[in-house]
Nucleic acid binder design. Structure first.
Lengths: 144, 144
DNA sequence: ATAGCTGCAAAACCTTTGCAATCAA
DNA sequence: TTGATTGCAAAGGTTTTGCAGCTAT
């Protein structure tokens, strides 16, 4: 059970928290908004208030379980922390998000920091562009 | 005058637009929110409605005069496009911000986007760390 | 038992929009 | 003149908060 995961970070193992954690884990490849989590729980007939989801996600964030991200949209997206370091490609047309990890990039970032006499701790990198997936509006336009 | 800058991109040279452009240019090193622009104009006794600022900044963005960015805050920040592409090093100890542009980095980003079949438009990169400037608390700690 | 948690509804944000008045060309 | 632009206020969408009741320990 994830009950332990919650206790470990000092949170009572309540039903809403367990359910929210479950949903995050069931969609660990996705970037979910509070609203997304809300709907996914409704789909399972789990009736958790939206306010609770916001509160719990904030607690998870404080506990280091999830990270909050702001891409182009007008709302925050959350993802589990345990998937490791990675950056994001975001499609500005359809909000599709892809993750990547690039060794060379990481190396170059360290060199840059070294040149500036910075001790690098971490970074945030988001590349914006148009994905060329068939279902993206940008593709349809090119087909004309 | 900046009147020309506006005409060039097909916008009537109205007072509010001129004033907003002026403020952006007077703070070209900063990242301003719509609210920031609003307050800066108030400070100059220029009374421009907040709604107008949002509208004008959106027009400037469409015209390529400014770029809209979403960092970690819950609101958008705008900066002039003409300062050229650059990224940021931020010291988490003293909030010192340094801008840099790195050719190799840019090249690698393009390669990454190409691999994912993304047409890259732009990106946001912030490196967090400790600067080692003498006036930074992090340096003082090491001197002990 | 009790400190902490939840749901609801209301409030707080940031941003966009409708509309009548105003302005640049 | 006339279409574009503005300011205001109202609406929109996301996130936070106050509070009374509920729950895990």
């Amino acid at each position: 059970m994830e009950t332990g995961d919650l206790r470990k970070v000092g949170l009572k193992a309540t039903l809403p928290r367990l359910k929210i954690l479950e949903v995050m884990q069931a969609h660990r490849e996705a970037h979910l908004s509070a609203e997304d989590v809300y709907r996914l729980l409704l789909d399972e007939d789990e009736d958790v208030g939206l306010a609770t989801i916001y509160r719990v996600l904030a607690q998870f964030e404080a506990a280091g379980l999830v990270v909050r991200r702001h891409f182009e949209e007008g709302h925050a997206l959350f993802e589990l922390t345990d998937i490791g370091p990675h950056d994001h490609l975001v499609c500005v047309e359809c909000d599709y998000v892809e993750e990547f990890y690039d060794e060379k990039l990481a190396g170059r970032l360290n060199e840059i920091a070294a040149q500036s006499e910075f001790s690098i701790a971490n970074h945030t990198l988001v590349i914006y562009g148009s994905c060329n997936r068939p279902e993206c509006p940008s593709s349809k336009r090119k087909n004309n």
